[in-house]
């Protein structure tokens, strides 16, 4: 990928991120932050590539830690975001999201 193409991608992605979030209501701030936190868990693929190319013990150790942390970001981010969003229901959907509550 050439530098200028990368810059185009960078610019367009920045606008996209801004536009996607621009009109979000306050009630979704916490889940959305958690959701975007999950999305940067994509760092996992980079960490995998780095570990995949590592040769010395030092590189392998850091690569291993990197993949471990990145996997934690992706998996943990998904788990908590899904849990929070699962609970959001309108009064149209009766039966509520309350677990263990009658």
């Amino acid at each position: 990928m050439t530098g200028i193409v990368a810059l185009y991608i960078f610019m367009l992605a920045a606008f996209t991120g801004y536009e996607v979030i621009a009109k979000v209501p306050v009630i979704l701030h916490t889940p959305l932050m958690s959701g975007s936190n999950f999305v940067h868990g994509i760092v996992l693929v980079g960490a995998m590539v780095a570990l995949g190319a590592a040769t010395t013990p030092l590189e392998k150790t850091i690569g291993f830690i990197g993949v471990l942390l990145a996997a934690g970001n992706a998996v943990g981010g998904y788990a908590v975001t899904e849990r929070m969003l699962e609970m959001f229901k309108s009064s149209g959907a009766k039966g509520g999201g309350a677990k263990g509550h009658h």
């Binding site: 991608i9 992605a13 920045a14 991120g17 979030i21 975007s36 999305v39 940067h40 994509i42």
Partner: peptide, 8 residues
């Protein structure tokens, strides 16, 4: 993904 999260 990184840039979208960065700006959002």
């Amino acid at each position: 993904a990184g840039t979208v999260v960065g700006s959002a």
